[in-house]
Write a protein that binds this DNA or RNA. Structure first.
Lengths: 209, 209
DNA sequence: CGGCGGAGTTACCCGCGCGTAGGATGATGT
DNA sequence: ACATCATCCTACGCGCGGGTAACTCCGCCG
C-alpha cells in the first residue's frame, strides 16, 4: 500500500503522440483515485515513469490536463445515451436502453465516470460548464422523446428528463458503491421499469392536479 | 465585485457561544460560495469581522469547521424527509411530500444544500461518509415504505429508493440552477407524479421480466 | 565525424494558505 | 485600584505543490 505499484518502465523514450496518450492514462488513474486536488503533478509524472517537465511539454497546466480527460468522458456519456435512444423507436425499449447506458458508463473501465459525476472541481467555471452541459444534453435528448408523445410543456419535459437522468446516475453509482448487490441487468430492469411506468402515464394525466 | 461586501462590524466582542454561531454563519457563506478548497480561512475570518486565531479558538482546523456545517445540513435533510414520510400514511401523498422535502431543502436559505449535494471534498473519508450516510438514510426510509407495499426484494427496494432520491435531488438542483423556470409547486407535482406512477406499478409486476 | 533537434532529467523557485506564538485590551471579582 | 481571565490582534513559520531554467543524452542527416 505504501509503496506505489511502481509505474511504467522508467527510462523508455516514446514518440510524442504515444507519450501523450500514456500521460493521459496515468493522469486518469490518479485523478480518478484521488480527485483533482489531492492529485499531484509529481505523482502523475511518476506514475507514467517520467519526470514532471515532460508533462508540461504536453499540457500547459494541471487544469488543461484534467479538462482533456473530462471532455473525453463527458462526450462518451452523451454518445452512448444518444445511441441508446437511437437504437429503437419503441419508447419503452428506449427507456430500458438509456438506463443501461448509464449503468454501462458507471461500470466502465477504470471508474472514469467519477470524473464526470464526482468531480471535486465543479466550482471552477470550465469544469462546471462541461459537467452541466453533458447532463443537460442527456436530459434534453430524453426530454425530446417525452415531448413528442406527451402534451407536457417544454419546461416540464426538461425537468422530467433531468429527473430520469438523476435517477439513473444516482442509482447506478449507488449500485456500484455497494459492490453490485444484485446483477447489473436486474438493476437496469428495475430502474427502467420505475422510469417507464413513471413517464408512460403522462399523456393522459398531465392536465390534472 | 472586487470589494468584499465588507463583513460584520469589526472590533465587537462577543460571548463564546454567540461568536461560534456567527463564525459558522460566515463559514457557511464562504464554503457555499467557493467550495471547500477555494475557501480560505483568512476570508472566513474577515467575513466574520474577526481575525484568524479566533477561528482556531473555536474549531481545531478547517476540516472540522466544514464538518460541523456538513453535519448540520445533512441531518436537516434527513429530518425533513423523515417528517415528510411520517406526515401521512397515504403512499401517494408520501411521495408528494418527499419530493417537496427535497425541493424545500434545495430551495432553502443560503443555498446550503450545496454542502451536501455538491461538496468538493467527497474524496476525503469523513466527508464522503457523511454525504453517503445522509443519502442512504433518505433512500432507506423510502425503501422501507416501498418494501411494505411490494414484494420486491430488499436490495431492489433499496435501489428504487436511491433512484427516487436521485430523481428528486438532481431535478431539484436543475430546477434551481435554471432559475426556477416553472413554479416550485408545479415542479414538485410533476416530479412527484413521475415518481408515484413509477413505484405504484410495482406490487403486481415485480415478478416478471 | 560534427552538429542539430527532440526527448528527458535534476534541481530549483515561489506563492499560497493553514496553523501558531506572543502580545494587547477590555470585562470582572475582590 | 489591582489581579485575573477571556477575548481578540499582529505578525510569522513553514510545508506543499504547481511551474520553470538549464543541462544531458541519443539518433540522425549531411
Amino acid at each position: 500500500m505504501t509503496a506505489t505499484p511502481d509505474a511504467r518502465p522508467r527510462g523508455t523514450r516514446l514518440p510524442r503522440l504515444a507519450r501523450r496518450k500514456q500521460l493521459l492514462g496515468a493522469a486518469q488513474e490518479v485523478f480518478v483515485a484521488q480527485g483533482y486536488h489531492a492529485a499531484a503533478m509529481d505523482e502523475i509524472a511518476e506514475r507514467a515513469g517520467v519526470s514532471k517537465p515532460v508533462l508540461y511539454q504536453h499540457f500547459p497546466g494541471k487544469l488543461e490536463l484534467y479538462l482533456a480527460l473530462l471532455d473525453e468522458h463527458a462526450e462518451a456519456l452523451v454518445k452512448i445515451v444518444r445511441e441508446a435512444l437511437e437504437s429503437t423507436t419503441d419508447n419503452k425499449l428506449r427507456v430500458q436502453a438509456s438506463m443501461q447506458a448509464f449503468y454501462d458508463f458507471v461500470d466502465g473501465e477504470g471508474e472514469a465516470y467519477r470524473l464526470v459525476f464526482e468531480s471535486d472541481l465543479r466550482n471552477v467555471a470550465p469544469v462546471r460548464a462541461r459537467v452541466e452541459r453533458a447532463n443537460q444534453q442527456c436530459a434534453e435528448m430524453i426530454a425530446q422523446v417525452i415531448a413528442e408523445d406527451t402534451n407536457a410543456p417544454a419546461e416540464e419535459a426538461h425537468l422530467l428528463g433531468m429527473g430520469l437522468v438523476g435517477m439513473a446516475e444516482v442509482s447506478a453509482r449507488f449500485w456500484l458503491s455497494q459492490h453490485r448487490p444484485i446483477p447489473k441487468d436486474t438493476a437496469e430492469k428495475v430502474i427502467a421499469r420505475l422510469a417507464w411506468r413513471g413517464i408512460s402515464g403522462f399523456p393522459r394525466t398531465a392536465d390534472q392536479g
